[in-house]
């Protein structure tokens, strides 16, 4: 469903991704696993269309969406949703407004119903009139996810969504995320540096190191990998 062919990307003069090729199946959760600075977030931004690749091409559903130094399909037309690392909740909008904003601006129908539906799904109904700064960390995460899902994306990009949460809350939200694929017919690309998170929910794990793929496969395959870097990474 999502293919990256020979992608390279630089920030300034620094090469972040170097000739990387990757494919992620539809209706699966693919986890990009690696330490900080290995290029995980960059890959998400390239798929979202927020950055242009320096070389290579990105294909979604057999359609080229990005190629060398060019955004062929604009981000808003790629049917992707993204949960940013800092969540990017708009602080001047209530929870309801944060979720409804995209629907309203796109002039979609049944805005209220759809917002309430997603609020109910995530158990956020009572927080609808609160502002982000009045929510706990976990509630904010859920609002960020709800905001993306209400627009019915085909692909959900999640950039370390559980970074600041406690174990109990993580488990709760991971359960939610696992259900999302089934409930919303999604393809999820999930970025994390925590292999336990990855192993809990991933259908496929891709281990990255310095902008290159070290190993990719199922959870079991990764656990049993003979790759020195992967073994080293999983130990810690």
């Amino acid at each position: 469903m999502v293919k990256l062919n020979n992608i390279s990307h630089t920030y300034g003069t620094k090469s972040v991704i170097n000739d990387l090729s990757l494919s992620m199946e539809a209706n699966r959760l693919t986890c990009l696993l690696g330490s900080s600075g290995c290029g995980k977030t960059t890959i998400l931004r390239l798929i979202a269309g927020l950055d242009k690749p320096a070389s290579g091409e990105i294909i979604i559903d057999n359609k080229t969406v990005s190629k060398k130094n060019e955004i062929v399909v604009l981000p808003q037309n790629r049917a992707t949703g993204m949960i940013f690392q800092d969540l990017a909740l708009w602080p001047h909008f209530t929870v309801y407004k944060n979720i409804a904003f995209g629907l309203t601006e796109r002039k979609e129908k049944n805005v209220k119903e759809r917002v309430i539906e997603v609020l109910t799904f995530f158990g956020l109904t009572e927080h609808a009139n609160k502002y982000p700064h009045q929510l706990s960390g976990g509630q904010k995460q859920l609002v960020a996810i709800a905001r993306s899902l209400v627009l019915k994306p085909k692909i959900l990009l999640m950039d370390e969504p559980l970074a600041n949460l406690d174990v109990k809350l993580k488990r709760k939200i991971l359960d939610h995320i696992s259900n999302l694929i089934r409930e919303f017919n999604l393809t999820i690309i999930y970025v994390t540096h925590d292999h336990k998170e990855a192993f809990a929910i991933a259908d496929k794990v891709v281990v990255l190191n310095k902008g290159k793929v070290e190993e990719e496969g199922s959870v079991e395959q990764i656990k049993e990998s003979k790759n020195e870097y992967v073994k080293f990474f999983l130990e810690y």
Binding site: A48, Q76, F84, A88, F101, R106, R147, L151
Partner: peptide, 21 residues
Amino acid sequence: PASMDEAAQLEGISKFKRFLR
């Protein structure tokens, strides 16, 4: 944060509306 604008961009909100809202 740039992500505030980018999140709205991904939602299909026009540049002018992102600026204004």
